[in-house]
Design a protein around this nucleic acid. Structure first.
Lengths: 184, 184
DNA sequence: GATCGTTATGCAACTTGTTGCACAAGGGGT
DNA sequence: ACCCCTTGTGCAACAAGTTGCATAACGATC
């Protein structure tokens, strides 16, 4: 039940069209809650029907025309309520950890390469986050409440990627140390 | 596409019935890939149809009777293939980070309590993992390849929970430091 | 011997996320 | 005038995950 709330947040930060939202999801918000343009359009439709958002009056209301949405009071109320609600963390669902466990059963051939590949990906992401931190949150921008909170969210992303790079390094040391892909 | 592979792994580690699998998912494997008994039964059906597993011959094949499954060669082959396949890490989907970002827009009232609640939950999970580590992987059990890999998986869980407790502590310091729930 | 809790399997309906494709408008090139 | 590319919206079908409930065997207990 988080996608509609992610959209409401994004629209409160700045009213947008479906495609603009999609792009913003690919950049900032999507780092913590990704979504395809399909999901977004479908959800925009539902949110509009529910009276949480509305399309800004457009000159030519037809297909293939940009449609901007803004949040209505009911939408803001729903979002506020969601933030206040208690919600337990969901258990981890991570395919790589699972695959490593499977590898313990069926053999680890080629798995070190996959770990290296993931390590490279996470390092890239980590660098990107750090760039964002430098650009969007220089020390003087860390006084306003809202900025400090957004910075905290980004810190979460950074620390998460740090966790992955650290764990993958540890795992590779294990693989390279003892060496040799072992077949079951 | 990971649940069937999680089940194959579990069944290779030990042939089981649906309910036994469900319980094992609640304990070990489910820490990295959770599933309800519904998903498991449905997936067992599909795996059987696909010829990846088979039900061990039971004396009384009727409803309400335990049915044990074992992995067939085709199932093992499929699992091996999955472990070897390259698969990119999925983007994070975390509701708490998202909610914090929403809180930056609609106000943080009561959010510190929610952070404290999550911190407590993650600390509990961390302790549980550490107990598991002590019990299942004492130093002398860390020589066999398969054990070392399973230990590595558990280390992943531990470091992840460590990340959360650290980040939540940081976040709470931010909240308590400046103090006072601020309404938008 | 009727009822009740536990173990065990499963159906049906629903929500959420993914994939592939269709449709429409407008601009640029040839 | 025609084609192609980009921007933009959207349907349809499917896959995966969730929730609520039904069914059946088995042992205990009153």
């Amino acid at each position: 039940m988080s996608l509609p709330h992610a959209i409401l947040t994004a629209l409160l930060e700045k009213p947008s069209s479906g495609l603009e939202l999609t792009r913003r999801f690919d950049r900032s918000i999507g780092y913590f809650w990704s979504a395809t343009h399909q999901q977004i359009y479908r959800e925009l439709g539902k949110l509009e029907q529910a009276g949480h958002i509305r399309a800004l009056p457009a000159p030519v209301p037809s297909r293939g025309q940009k449609k901007e949405y803004e949040v209505l009071p009911a939408g803001r109320a729903e979002l506020t309520d969601w933030v206040r609600r208690a919600e337990d963390p969901k258990p981890i669902r991570d395919a790589l950890l699972l695959r490593l466990r499977a590898a313990a059963v069926v053999g680890t051939e080629g798995f070190a390469d996959e770990l290296r590949r993931h390590l490279a990906l996470h390092r890239t992401q980590l660098d990107e986050y750090r760039d964002m931190e430098d650009r969007q949150f220089p020390p003087e921008r860390r006084t306003a409440e809202a900025d400090r909170l957004r910075h905290l969210v980004l810190r979460g992303g950074i620390e998460l990627e740090r966790f992955w790079t650290a764990w993958l390094t540890e795992a590779l040391a294990e693989f390279d140390g003892r060496d040799g892909p072992t077949n079951c």
